[in-house]
Design a protein around this nucleic acid. Sequence first.
DNA 1: TATTTGTCCTAACAGTTGTTTGCGAATGTA
DNA 2: TACATTCGCAAACAACTGTTAGGACAAATA
Lengths: 196, 196
Amino acid sequence: MSETIGNLSRKEQVIRKAAELFKEKGYAAASMRDLAQLLGIEAASLYSHIKSKEEILRSLCFDMAAEFRKSLEEVEKQPGSASEKLRNGIIGHIQVMAKDLTASAVFMNEHRHLSEPYLRDFLLLRINYINRFKTIIEEGVHTGEFKNSIDKKLAVMTLFSSLNWMPMWYDPGSAIDPQALGFQLADMLVNGLKKQ
Amino acid sequence: MSETIGNLSRKEQVIRKAAELFKEKGYAAASMRDLAQLLGIEAASLYSHIKSKEEILRSLCFDMAAEFRKSLEEVEKQPGSASEKLRNGIIGHIQVMAKDLTASAVFMNEHRHLSEPYLRDFLLLRINYINRFKTIIEEGVHTGEFKNSIDKKLAVMTLFSSLNWMPMWYDPGSAIDPQALGFQLADMLVNGLKKQ
DNA sequence: TATTTGTCCTAACAGTTGTTTGCGAATGTA
DNA sequence: TACATTCGCAAACAACTGTTAGGACAAATA
């Protein structure tokens, strides 16, 4: 048994479908009966695979968080100027998202429905990640690469806003592929829209 | 009757508090009993002032939409280069948001819970607004002010992502005031982080 | 004074929520 | 063959959902 259709265990199938549902309707508005119906089973049967609705959300949020963290660590290892690091950080972030747009959307929009103490843990991971980007920006301001006229909190928040909304509008079947998207996004944020 | 504490009718008080609640917990997770408790009354009493939960959401979303529209129309009237128009559009958008950060957050995050046909209407207003910004960007590319290397959809979506997340992190009591925020945001998006 | 309007109440409704229990059937392993 | 595991079901649970009905009291209006 344990058919692992397409290399996915039944539990993984449940979590995947849940991610789609959470993305579409939002965590709170998505019921376990909705989810069961999408999988062609009864709601009670879900509990053969998962412990609770929130366990699904937790696994989606924390798995994504781990991916982001891994990506940033790679970037930090490599030497280079602040703009190069920032550029690589942006590209890495986009690539992680592009690997699972659905989970990314849930990660971004639904994490607030985590209960304590998970919510606290999640937010700590998040602020740590953001602060490491902020450090890169501060480094760039310090070396004179970046303007010092811009508020650093504003800069880093604007950066993450741009990145984190990508899963909401990006169509993976479109002309621009994830890598090119990362390149262009990095260019736009670092160099701006204007010709120089 | 009709005490209008602080110039707000009871209905307006209900809608305001609802906005706070919707922002904090999300529309779907916020119950009418939660809202009633915040106002110190029973859930049933809310219905003396409003027709339904969704009516509150509708009024929040469409009132904000009208403000954004009004602001953009002002900008379009005035002559100037594409970067000037874009800059003014950004500053206007930020100012509208800053006037009501709570309603702005709801407008942005909770509009999807509108039922048809309101959702459709809302999305039409939104795409129209976005397209008018896109036109400004295209104009800038055409006149050679902006790079033509950047995908226009990407550019406009990145712009809106940055703008729309502002209510999530901006602290109105902070050092940077809404106008300076608009200036800096416009500068960052048009000219980038890098020194020129 | 009489009447309307605004505001809130208790009680209740029908439906939905996440989840548990106990069971059965099929599949894989010994 | 015997056994364990996986996967699913029906039925039920207590709690919660948005909302309605019908009434009470006070302030504003006539």
